[in-house]
Amino acid sequence: MATKPILTLEDAKRVAAAADTEAQANAWKVVIAVVDDGGHLLYLQRSHDTQFGSVETAIAKAHAAVAFQRPTKASEDAVLSGRLIHLALPGVIPAEGGVPLMRDGLIVGGLGISGVRSFQDGQIAQAGANAL
């Protein structure tokens, strides 16, 4: 039987803290969602004054990054280049800000950010992923 690394709650908090540091450095109000390798919510953080519509979007971005095993920016880029089939795929979020979390070449979870412009969400997400 194979073994694999798992994303712990402590790991999720560390990733979220790094993402939060990036968001605060830019005065961006965001929602930070961390999911496990099955796409299930492990940790959620929302600034008190962040729009509540970003909660589900951040979770969906994190889930999509795990489900499709790539950053959500890949779907955003595909749609922007005319590959509209991505819009028909279940669970696709064609907006930057969702990234898979990797350990030893395996996906252990996903990070989703929502609240500011797409490329800014992506910048925050990358800062969080780098903490892992």
Score class of each variant (00 low, 15 high):
15 V>R: 05
123 Q>V: 07
97 G>P: 03
98 G>Q: 04
45 Q>M: 05
87 L>N: 09
126 Q>S: 13
87 L>P: 05
14 R>F: 00
59 I>F: 08
127 A>G: 06
52 F>T: 15
109 G>D: 07
53 G>W: 00
87 L>M: 14
53 G>R: 03
52 F>I: 15
18 A>Q: 02
75 S>R: 01
5 P>W: 10
20 D>C: 02
70 R>Y: 02
52 F>A: 10
132 L>M: 15
49 D>C: 01
93 I>N: 03
93 I>W: 00
55 V>Q: 09
18 A>F: 10
62 A>D: 04
14 R>D: 11
9 L>Q: 09
31 V>I: 13
49 D>T: 11
41 L>A: 06
11 D>F: 03
46 R>V: 03
63 H>R: 11
94 P>L: 06
107 I>W: 01
77 D>T: 14
117 R>D: 14
4 K>V: 12
105 G>E: 10
110 G>K: 03
98 G>F: 07
84 L>I: 08
46 R>P: 04
21 T>V: 10
110 G>M: 05
122 G>D: 10
8 T>M: 09
104 D>N: 14
51 Q>F: 14
97 G>L: 01
107 I>G: 06
7 L>C: 12
52 F>P: 04
68 F>T: 01
25 A>H: 02
8 T>N: 10
70 R>T: 15
44 L>C: 08
90 P>H: 02
74 A>E: 14
42 L>I: 14
125 A>Q: 12
42 L>Y: 03
105 G>S: 13
132 L>Q: 11
110 G>P: 08
108 V>D: 04
55 V>F: 06
64 A>T: 03
82 G>L: 09
119 F>G: 00
